[in-house]
Design a binder for these strands. Sequence first.
DNA 1: ATGTCGATTTGCT
DNA 2: GCAAATCGACATA
Length: 198
Amino acid sequence: MAGKKLTAEWYQRPDTVALARELLGKVLCTQFDGQTTRAIISETEAYCGAEDKACHAYGNRRTKRTETMFLPGGAAYVYLCYGIHHLFNVVTHAQDVPHAILVRAVQPLEGVEIMLQRRGHTKQSKKLSAGPGTMSQAMGITTAYNATNLQSSSIWIENHGISIPAAQVETTPRIGVDYAGEDAKLPYRFEVQAAIAH
DNA sequence: ATGTCGATTTGCT
DNA sequence: GCAAATCGACATA
């Protein structure tokens, strides 16, 4: 069941948009209180630091919240949105270059029972872990894990050798970033709509 | 010190 | 389809 853990070098590569595309089909894993869950990443968005108006760290804005994005690639950036939702991002690029990839949806692979319990659902459905807030809840990720290193034993990402054909990937503008002007139109969102075979 | 608002989800009209 | 929920970060004073 376990795959090969992505290395620090993988995360620290500079092309965040390409990494967002490559993240599709990779397996996000969490282990909290001895409970392990695994899920295949099916939707991502790239946020490209200082030059990207949609990014929290646009213009290299350094605050308590954005500080995590300045860490070297390979850290988890988790923040609270609308006071309710914990949004999970993967920090990429080198230290002091605030790029990140928002994981918006995953498909459950292991520990489905645990995810159902966390979500308060009784049956598996598409809504179980599709959406940036719900997928965090299903995986048990909260802001308490902000800045967690992805080489740790709490949160990490594995390569299971799953590749997604280009024909199955939809590339669209990002969601909910209308305030970003021209940058709101950038094709930085990658989505696999079909169920991923594994 | 205080006010505004968000990389959303959910339930009700 | 619309609006409430809910809290911390950030900007302004």
